[in-house]
Amino acid sequence: MHELRLMWRNTRMVVLCAISAALYAAVLVPFKVVPLIPGVTELRPANAIPIVCSFLFGPAAAWGSAIGNMIGDFFGGVGPGDIFGFVANLMYGYIPYKTWRIIADGQSPVMRTPANIAKYVAVCLAASVLCADLVGWGDNLLAFRPFSILGNIIIFNNMVSALVLSPLILYGVYPRVRAGRMLYTDMMPELAERPRATRIAGLTMLLAGEIGAWAMGNLVSTGYWMPSFLPASFAISPYDKAIAVTVSPLIFIALAGAWLM
């Protein structure tokens, strides 16, 4: 994760971060008026942009995704929950390229082999689930909205964009950017990765944490299941305290995994 700090020293990466954010916001803001579930989320074809930018600009895209979402949030109402939205979108831009480097290092994300397509879907799903977990967890902690609404809609919304739109944009843009030597690996050749074993351990922790958080969040926020060690006062709607106790450790495991990647 050190590249998220290092990239700010590189002027080209700062500009690419702003461009990623602006592209994201430019598609996000016009669709603010097309709600999927009003007051909860809107149609977000813009969610294709962070995935594309992640493969192209790496850490700059991660920050660009967070800043672009923040700009978008200003037009749908900012609030304390947007701090979680900022981190969630940072991860939505960070996870794809990091995971890709572990499971498909050196391969182009636009190669259309069945194995590559499966890896691409897995990468997008890993990013979408963590993003959904963070927003759902944060909003339920603040008792704004239940985890089970946001935690599922965001996965659906992100995956539709990532599977329907991102591959087409990536197919058109990636070869040109690579030929122009503007990929993040060209911009920041000094980036060093952790040992492969550490990165694989990080990926395992990420997946275990985010899948666990998603399952736990859904079970607890609907009141369907509650761990027996929780006091009875926690087992009442809006389940904010129960979510804090049960989902938070899993979220921290997922974030620790992302840090190790």
């Binding site: 700062v14 971060c17 702003a18 602006a22 916001a25 803001v29 016009p30 920050w63 923040m70 700009i71």
Partner: peptide, 20 residues
């Protein structure tokens, strides 16, 4: 907030309408 982050936010706000 560091200057470079603030700059990126300003630039993104300025570029978004140009991209639209």
């Amino acid at each position: 907030v560091p200057y470079r982050v603030g700059f990126a936010i300003t630039l993104a706000f300025r570029l978004a309408p140009l991209f639209i």
